[in-house]
């Protein structure tokens, strides 16, 4: 005897995740446009590693492989992690990070749907703590007109660790916009001096600001197609903007504009793609807002006062811990029981 309902909307986890992957494409395209195709190499590497790790873990956990490997969640983790690692990183960095994200932070916690922490951010956190040096060599955008490697030379570095003889790694890479800002502020420069440096564009870092816009476009697509709810990105960006705004108003020479914070680092990809991971975010509308506001404030505090250049990953992970508590305290009133006590 079957139980009703007998019909269902044609939707599936794999479809939802595929839409999210599609929404990443504008950002990735702009990434390639401004920084060259090396990012595609790390995305491919991460994807292969993720699928292989997923298959091995499913096998070890005696779970059916086909329905889970085709759910596209491992791919999404891989893409998000690859996008937060410098493209010109040695191949094993991507592989180690992805494998850790899938095997430990996803499957050891019970697999799809049971992991308390965002796997991609766990992967990122492990890498930035274990290999901080490798994680700071970011490619310089084409716009700066510096020395650039050809694609073959990039591949040669990623897989063999060999650079052309006349170049050092420092010559072809640079720190991120946020990192540079932090270092220069420490050195005593004012915000206006720093912003005049060539690596900065109109909003934030040259090139990276455009990539952030690409992610925002993809994110808006997700909101309009109701793949994600608006609560998380809107609350996150608003909290980040407000916190940055307060500090900026108090001392504009020491604290950059809120817009700079929006368009630098992982703020945009985080707001639309990382916080919105349904498994690790709250389920109630109120809870989502609390979660995202917390993450926004933490991101700012870590960026400005913490030891790491960007705070998105740690802010997400810290708020992930709070999710069960947030959910428990934000249970909405049910139908007919809103006028409690009456």
């Amino acid at each position: 005897m079957l139980s009703s309902p007998f019909i269902a909307q044609p939707s599936s986890v794999s479809q939802i995740m595929l839409r999210v992957l599609l929404a990443l494409i504008p950002g990735i395209a702009l990434y390639v446009w401004y920084f060259g195709p090396a990012i595609l190499v790390s995305i491919t590497l991460a994807s292969i590693t993720a699928l292989a790790t997923e298959a091995v873990m499913l096998k070890l956990r005696s779970r059916p492989i086909k329905p889970f490997i085709s759910d596209n969640t491992a791919l999404l983790t891989a893409w998000l992690l690859a996008l937060s690692i410098p493209p010109l990183a040695p191949w094993w960095l991507v592989v180690v990070g992805t494998a850790f994200a899938i095997a430990v932070s996803k499957h050891l916690y019970g697999g799809l749907g049971s992991n308390p922490f965002n796997p991609a951010m766990i992967g990122y956190a492990v890498l930035i703590i274990s290999f901080p040096v490798h994680m700071t060599h970011w490619l310089t955008p084409h716009a700066l007109g510096g020395v650039e490697l050809s694609f073959v030379e990039q591949l040669n570095y990623i897989f063999n660790g060999v650079l052309p003889s006349h170049l050092t790694l420092d010559a072809i890479t640079m720190a991120t916009a946020l990192d540079t800002l932090k270092t220069q502020l420490h050195l005593g420069l004012s915000v206006s001096d720093i912003r005049d440096m060539p690596i900065y564009g109109r909003l934030a870092g040259k090139g990276s600001e455009m990539v952030a816009i690409g992610f925002a476009i993809g994110g808006l697509y997700l909101i309009f197609t109701r793949i994600i709810s608006w609560h998380l990105p809107v609350a996150y960006l608003a909290a980040l903007f407000a916190t940055a705004g307060v500090f900026h108003l108090v001392d504009p020479q020491h604290y950059v504009t809120p817009l700079f914070h929006w368009f630098s680092g992982a703020a945009m990809i985080g707001a639309f793609f990382i916080l919105t991971d349904p498994v690790t975010s709250p389920t109630t509308a109120k809870g989502k807002i609390i979660f995202a506001v917390g993450a926004g404030i933490l991101t700012y505090l870590i960026r400005v006062f913490g030891g790491f250049p960007d705070g998105m990953a740690f802010a997400t992970l810290l708020m992930n811990i709070c999710v069960p508590l947030i959910d428990a305290y934000t249970q909405p009133k049910v139908f007919g029981k809103k006028g409690a006590g009456k």
Partner: peptide, 29 residues
């Protein structure tokens, strides 16, 4: 007419059920 449902996957807490619940419950919980 009513094809059998594909095998169920774990809940990913996407809250689509919460969005459509007319009793305003938390079906995933």
């Amino acid at each position: 007419l009513f094809p059998p449902q594909p095998p169920a996957l774990p809940c990913i807490r996407c809250t689509r059920c919460t969005d459509v619940c007319p009793a305003e419950l938390q079906p995933q919980d």
